[in-house]
Nucleic acid binder design. Structure first.
Lengths: 220, 220, 220, 220
DNA sequence: TATGAATGAGCATTCATTCAT
DNA sequence: CATGAATGAATGCTCATTCAT
């Protein structure tokens, strides 16, 4: 099982095999339940070699997160052309995102679930990636407002919240699409575009939803 | 430390103390890193008593998830009056949701992170709760369409996707609000209402965003 | 082998059994080569119990050193009556020392060899004991000088060196006596008394050995 | 780090570099804590080369002991001229001994601590060296008795014990001098000469210390 | 002569879980 | 109702040692 067992490969190749095995194991078992024994076996090497190349379970996990975060952001970047209109950029980015997460579910589990669930060294690693994406989306929102000749002075915090909500919805939909048979990356992206972009357009038309008077309310 | 140590209490009370300690420990340490020793000590009882009442670590974790899922759904239910208009129901429900997650961060960590991160017995437990909420939101969307006298024949899968996205965005915003100082439950709810409801309204006005022609595209 | 295996003993008793096994194992195998497995088996308990009571290998080793250092100093103290003349005190102390080290060779190995060989936390523990003994001997030398009505103003550093040499010789002889069949504690003590006390007496008679002129010498 | 890395040197030179590194590492870390990795790195060679030249960790350690034992005995031998009087020979030998141990503390640690602490193959190696020195000292004692025209029929075992005590004191003082700032080899040697030689002189003058009657004593 | 690649075996430590009282 | 005493089974990690080149 796993990689075909062949001896004496150059270090770089072996390292990638180990990371493959680790991503798969961490993604399916979870960080803590994954044992170095299992990872080594799946990689087709002995445990000491894993330690020789990757130092510790924590370092191995961090290396997984870094590799997969880079792969995901690069997939999204490669799917977007910055010269197109903002809505098209978002559409292309979302499609690339859902496609990548669908094709690498273990990697997505590592990034979305495992890394967030196990304390600071790891969560921070993913937060960096996420902030990059949120910044990208924030930029698109601002550009869209400008393209629509609308008031570009959207309160900064509000835009941040919107971008956060959009990214959160995307992340959630990725898990949903992975778990629901028959949902393609294209459909997931379309759903989110409908949900979000139309909402934003409406908002910018000057018809935001407004909360009722909070006067007599107990909570919130 | 933890609960005041007092002997001979009725079983029901002791069980709640144990669950309190377990939710706190699971929420802060994570499911696997939490040790039964620590939970027992925090609950102020001996370890065998925890086993006597709650059987195993898995059962204890499941009991935590059930209790907190119930508490959350009841908090949301209590915040909503079904006779009000759909948008008001959503607004009230979101406020109740963000308020509860802000007040019980360990419980939210258990439901949102830990339970999802650790395999099937637990993820299913949370999925049940989530489906209840998604169903509620789906109902609101359908009602809203009817109230707006729009075509009530929105494709079912599309509505499901929208509800999924809304709930995902809410979950994500709950974590964001907990982590970002100065974001109140009210603000989080308003952000999401702006984002979502406005978008939905626009969608139902017959101006959905539509994807470009997929003909020549490689992915998706 | 080792203690008779009997279940459910009070903690204090079990702890002593563990220390017995540990002293024996550390004394014979050495600190690093001794495995916690072997110690636990020799003590007739499972490994987790050893950790429950004694925390770690380092703590266990420290506990051994402390117990045996205390036992040795108390054996020496119990053998000496402070109202007797200095030479008699030294004689009694040496006999008690050699008797104890002969009867507890593993303990002596732990104190004399193992503890000194493995870094600061442990060496310091033994140094404390040793300093107590050196101080005792130093006191005897000073008293002896006074009793002999000799000049009591022996340079302090010189006395310290003499005491150090005496104690070092004793330690070395203890190993020699343990390894040489037919050497009793009594004989070891007599040898050292002859060697040391007589030398000291001569020294105090004003006939110290004096080094040749160092003028043309290359080393030292 | 360590030796400058240069390829293709004659075997004898490389072996000495390895032994240098090994003595330093064994002396500072201890036999078991020293890793072959560290030794190889300090020697500036790859691990397989160490094995090629020195077979195993045990053999390497033995080689260290042999080399350093030889160096020490040769240093002492070179410091002594056999045609001088016995006391002068002892004085010169001690000075050479303390000088050498002070200049090679790692080697002394290997011989005095590490070799003795780790079982039979190694302790025996050091015992051989020690016996040579004890024999030398024994000879000096006998000669001294003859020179003093005293009874040359000292019981053999007694002389052996005296020599043993002298050597043990010297070993102990070497560690003490190394650890106590400001104690020169010369001072250490003088202290021991005062302590020992004077005592022996007194003994041979017919005034040995004699033990009290053992009649009513419990131990020894 | 010299080394990068690789491993079998073992070790300290921890944890969920269960008796006996 | 409640617990002190005890353990089987892993797990992360390291090390001496060897092969193939």
């Amino acid at each position: 099982m796993g990689a075909v067992k062949s001896k004496r490969m150059p270090r770089a190749v072996r390292e990638q095999q180990m990371l493959d095995a680790a991503v798969r194991t961490f993604g399916q078992r979870g960080y803590m339940a994954a044992s170095m024994d299992e990872i080594a076996e799946l990689a087709g090497v002995s445990k000491p070699l894993v330690y020789l190349y990757l130092n510790s379970k924590e370092d191995l996990f961090t290396a997984c997160i870094r590799r997969e975060a880079k792969a995901l952001t690069e997939a999204v970047r490669a799917g977007v052309r910055r010269e197109l209109p903002a809505d098209r950029q978002l559409w292309d980015g979302l499609r690339a995102f859902f496609t990548h997460t669908a094709q690498h579910p273990d990697a997505w589990s590592v990034l979305h679930l495992q890394a967030r669930t196990h304390g600071e060294p790891f969560a921070a690693e993913v937060t960096a990636m996420r902030e990059e994406i949120v910044a990208f989306v924030t930029g698109l929102i601002v550009v869209a407002a400008r393209e629509a000749h609308r008031d570009p002075d959207l309160p900064e915090r509000e835009v941040a919240g919107l971008a956060e909500a959009l990214v959160g919805a995307a992340e959630s939909l990725a898990a949903w699409a992975n778990a629901t048979p028959g949902i393609s990356a294209r459909q997931a992206a379309a759903t989110l575009m409908n949900f979000a972009w139309a909402g934003l357009g409406n908002l910018m038309d000057g018809h935001p939803w407004s909360p009722p008077e909070p006067v007599h309310e107990a909570i919130g």
